[in-house]
Amino acid sequence: KNAAQIVDEALNQGITLFVADNRLQYETSRDNIPEELLNEWKYYRQDLIDFLQQLD
């Protein structure tokens, strides 16, 4: 998997990933985040941060 796929997957589930103060953050109206997504975000944290910062 790559960062773009993970960001896309999150968006499809109503979750927006973004970077604030060099930390990976998310916004969602969901009550909870599936644990497998959280684990994936932790595992790919630096890739996601790098990818999202390139988009800014």
Rank of each mutant, 00 (worst) to 15 (best):
N22D: 11
A3N: 02
E36P: 06
E27Y: 15
D50R: 13
N12A: 15
L24M: 03
N32G: 08
S29F: 10
G14A: 04
A4P: 06
D8N: 14
R30P: 03
L11M: 11
I33L: 08
I49K: 03
T28S: 10
Q46D: 10
L17S: 02
E40C: 06
L38P: 02
D56A: 13
G14N: 05
E36T: 10
Q53I: 14
A3M: 12
I33D: 01
I33P: 05
L17C: 05
D56Q: 14
L17E: 01
E36W: 09
T16Y: 15
L37K: 03
N12C: 12
L11E: 06
L37F: 07
L17I: 05
L52Y: 03
D50A: 14
N2W: 08
T16M: 11
I33S: 02
L24T: 01
E36C: 06
S29D: 13
Y43F: 12
L55N: 12
N2L: 13
F51T: 02
L24C: 03
N2C: 13
I49C: 06
D21V: 05
L52E: 00
L17N: 01
W41Y: 05
K1H: 04
N2Q: 10
A20C: 15
L48V: 05
K1L: 04
N22I: 05
L38W: 07
N22Y: 07
N32V: 13
Q53G: 10
Q53Y: 09
L37Q: 04
L55I: 12
V7E: 00
E9S: 05
Q13F: 13
N22A: 08
E36F: 09
L55G: 11
I15E: 01
I6F: 02
D31S: 10
K42M: 14
F18S: 07
D50G: 06
A20D: 09
Q54M: 12
A20K: 15
L17M: 05
T28D: 02
K42V: 12
Q53N: 13
I49Y: 06
A4C: 09
P34S: 09
I49L: 08
N39T: 10
D56K: 12
D50P: 04
A4Y: 07
F18W: 07
L48G: 00
L37A: 03
Q46M: 08
Q5L: 09
Q13W: 13
A20T: 11
K42S: 14
L52F: 09
Q5M: 09
E40Y: 06
F51R: 02
I15M: 03
E27H: 15
Q53V: 13
D50S: 11
L24S: 00
R23P: 01
D8F: 15
Y43P: 03
I49R: 03
A3R: 02
Y44W: 07
L48D: 00
L11R: 14
Y26M: 05
A3S: 04
A3K: 01
L48T: 00
D21P: 01
R45Q: 14
T16D: 05
L37E: 01
A20P: 02
D50I: 11
I33C: 02
G14Q: 05
Q25I: 08
Y44L: 03
R30H: 08
Q25T: 07
D8Q: 15
S29L: 12
A20M: 12
A3G: 04
R23I: 15
E27P: 02
A10Y: 03
N12E: 14
E36D: 10
N22Q: 08
Q54N: 09
E27N: 13
E35Y: 08
